[in-house]
Design a protein around this nucleic acid. Structure first.
Lengths: 196, 196
DNA sequence: GCCTGAAACGAACGTTCGTTCTATTTTGAT
DNA sequence: ATCAAAATAGAACGAACGTTCGTTTCAGGC
């Protein structure tokens, strides 16, 4: 179907715009203009703005997974894979995978207190992400790289905080060193926990 | 002047709305409705939406300082004051000082890639905040509570990351334990660095 | 109590928003 | 090549946006 290809290219652009201007700032008129389509033609692909937002979040999620998860799976489970995920995250910011910084950090803070299905989707995906981090940590415990006594949820929380903190300082404050700082903090924390 | 009082009450409400819906989601019509004022009467206080946004950010900054800085200054400089700032930050989230979570976390992620004076103001205030954190850390060094070798900018980055991470998990994911996790991480980090 | 400037109002502006039609073009299987 | 279905376009909708204007109400110093 041609429609599928069009839909895909619409969403690619929608994700980029939303990462810059937010999911509410993403406007059907502007999106249509940039893609040289009619508003109504574009609109027909989704049926409502809310559906467009949901599809945009889904599309961003696919990009996120492709950039961060897939590469990490190539590394051996346990400590190496956990480090690979962390490296992938920071590299994902450095490379500007989304032009406005991490799509999900932005979306999370935009929708964190707006009830609705869009918020629910974002929250579900973020829960999945934190769970995946926890799982990577627990794998490192199972492989004997980390002590069993480590609180995986606690460590996952800390890592995610450092990711978001790096994104914040890098994008808003243009602090190039932010990513290095996050790297240093993560490295110190992980190596201190490591069983050798 | 009566106008000053009105302006103040407009901004109080504006801050609350903006913390929930964002500074772009903050609408002059809705703000006027909630305050039972006419759009034009309210508008006259600011002259433009951008001026309203700037005044709203300033007003939020005053609330932020009153809630986090002022109480901390009552504690002795050095380690105790640094701990007091961290406690005040987490308590500020727990108490819901802004109904939508930390105003500045939300504003930072909303405006981080939108050029303009509003973004510039937010960035300046956030730089000030990080600088104040750094200063509190350096004071602890000067008082002999921390080793001189500690990198204050690095530690300030980490603390701020944990604050934002706590806000994220608490508001979006409704994770009540998020604040406890941040507390634990901060406590562990600070106590490990402490000179006894 | 009056007078003046400040403050608030109501109506309207042009624009853009999301959305709904109907009509036209394009696509792809036959 | 045909033809139904899918995709796109175009025009219009009411609502809401920020903003402007002229008018009315109110407050506070004399």
């Amino acid at each position: 179907m041609k429609g599928d290809r069009t839909r895909q290219s619409i969403l690619e652009r929608a994700v980029d715009i939303a990462s810059l201007e937010g999911l509410e700032g993403l406007t059907i008129g502007r999106l249509a203009d940039e893609l040289k389509m009619s508003k109504s033609g574009l609109f027909a692909h989704f049926g409502s703005k809310e559906e467009l937002q949901l599809a945009t979040v889904q599309s961003a999620s696919e990009r996120y997974i492709a950039e961060i998860f897939r590469p990490a799976l190539a590394h051996p489970r346990g400590y190496p894979r956990l480090v690979a995920v962390c490296d992938a995250w920071l590299s994902y910011i450095r490379r500007g995978v989304f032009p406005g910084g991490c799509f999900f950090a932005a979306a999370s803070f935009e929708f964190d207190s707006r009830p609705g299905v869009v918020r629910d989707l974002i929250a579900r995906l973020m829960r999945n992400w934190i769970d995946a981090l926890e799982k990577a940590i627990r794998m490192a415990q199972e492989e004997g790289h980390f002590d069993k006594s480590i609180d995986a949820a606690q460590l996952a929380f800390e890592l995610n905080s450092l990711f978001f903190g790096a994104n914040f300082s890098y994008v808003l404050l243009h602090d190039e060193a932010a990513i290095t700082k996050a790297e240093a903090a993560i490295k110190a924390r992980l190596e201190a926990l490591r069983v050798t």
